[in-house]
Design a protein around this nucleic acid. Structure first.
Length: 308
DNA sequence: AATAGTCGCAACCGCCAGGGG
DNA sequence: CCCCCTGGCGGTTGCGACTAT
């Protein structure tokens, strides 16, 4: 049943970093024959590499017109904005950044932007202020206490649940052992859940939390890593509300952390909004307004859901 | 100067969708 | 219509470079 490997494992396929000689061979082959039919590329180019590896090397490193310098503030804005609107669709995001690959964008997000968002009081998963998340947790706990009678019915449903407004308030993994070992890993886990199950039960009331394993538990644990910084941030007289901060890391479009799909046209609109904007505030306002408009038009619905 | 810890990037892995036979 | 191959995608890992002690 398992799919055979893309490369003949009997043949000694080299792994790891590419040498300049290998790069030269691949470049020479592609310049002569073009891209495509990657499975035959290693043999024809005289490389002891997997075809997939060749394609990746070309796409992420050797391809012409790739930028290898650092990301500009404008690119950062674009990444954060698009991530807030479409989630971790790195290829879509990268397509809006000339010279950048999805791997570049993904790495930059994972290593820099998500951490900076967290440090500035924005949950990198939902793009909402941590204060809102804290409030959600509190209200959830109150709600949970009042609705324990319904928990038996909810126990039968294993999918993460998201409120119709996009808030990820009550995701649980009844049969999964969630044991976050670091903020980045747990963030990644939550991100995956949020993005792969966007508004999975829109229109239906969220079930109450389960007493055994509740995602809020580890969210709270995870969030605690930077809640102190958030409190300090909010306590500071100079601190602006997170959603109006002039820094890139403070943007928090309301009610949309679901990673719901946006069409190419909508992505382009977002990009144009960033490009046309002469200031972060107007840019943010534009995004927020558009987000509110979309959420009101398609409350609780996403094309992903429509496909189900 | 040596060592441990952290960071960032490159590459790999597994899954999935689309297209062709 | 079905199966298989290929390419694409997102998540994860490995490792070298850098920094702090």
């Amino acid at each position: 049943m398992t799919r055979p490997p893309c490369c003949d494992e009997l043949m000694s396929v080299k792994k790891g970093l590419w040498t300049p000689e290998e790069d030269a061979k691949l470049l020479a082959y592609v310049s002569n024959h073009g891209t495509g039919n990657w499975t035959n590329v290693p043999k024809r180019a005289g490389l002891k590499r997997c075809g997939k590896s060749c394609r990746l090397r070309w796409t992420n490193y050797l391809r012409p017109n790739l930028k290898h310098e650092g990301f500009t503030p404008h690119e950062e804005e674009l990444i954060v904005t698009l991530h807030a609107n479409i989630g971790s669709r790195w290829s879509v995001i990268a397509s809006q950044l000339p010279g950048r690959t999805d791997n570049d964008v993904k790495n930059y997000w994972n290593t820099k932007l998500s951490k900076r968002l967290a440090l500035n009081g924005i949950d990198p998963v939902t793009h909402r202020p941590i204060a809102d998340v804290k409030e959600s947790i509190t209200s959830l706990q109150i709600s949970a206490a009042a609705t324990t009678a319904a928990s038996a019915a909810a126990r039968r449903c294993r999918s993460p649940h998201v409120f119709a407004n996009g808030d990820l308030r009550n995701t649980h993994f009844a049969n999964d052992v969630i044991s976050p070992t670091s903020s980045s890993s747990s963030s990644s886990t939550a991100s995956t859940a949020a993005n792969q199950n966007p508004i999975s039960n829109a229109g239906t009331p969220p079930p109450p939390p389960l007493p055994d394993v509740d995602w809020v538990d580890f969210l709270a644990e995870d969030a605690s890593l930077y809640l102190e910084e958030l409190d300090a941030h909010l306590a500071s007289p100079a601190a602006a509300p997170a959603s109006t901060s002039s820094t890139i890391l403070s943007k928090a479009p309301p009610g949309d952390g679901d990673g719901g799909f946006r069409s190419t046209e909508e992505v382009s609109d977002i990009v144009q909004g960033v490009t046309a904007s002469d200031g972060w505030s107007s840019f943010v306002d534009g995004i927020l307004n558009r987000d509110r408009q979309l959420m009101s038009e398609f409350a609780g619905l996403t094309p992903d859901l429509d496909l189900l």
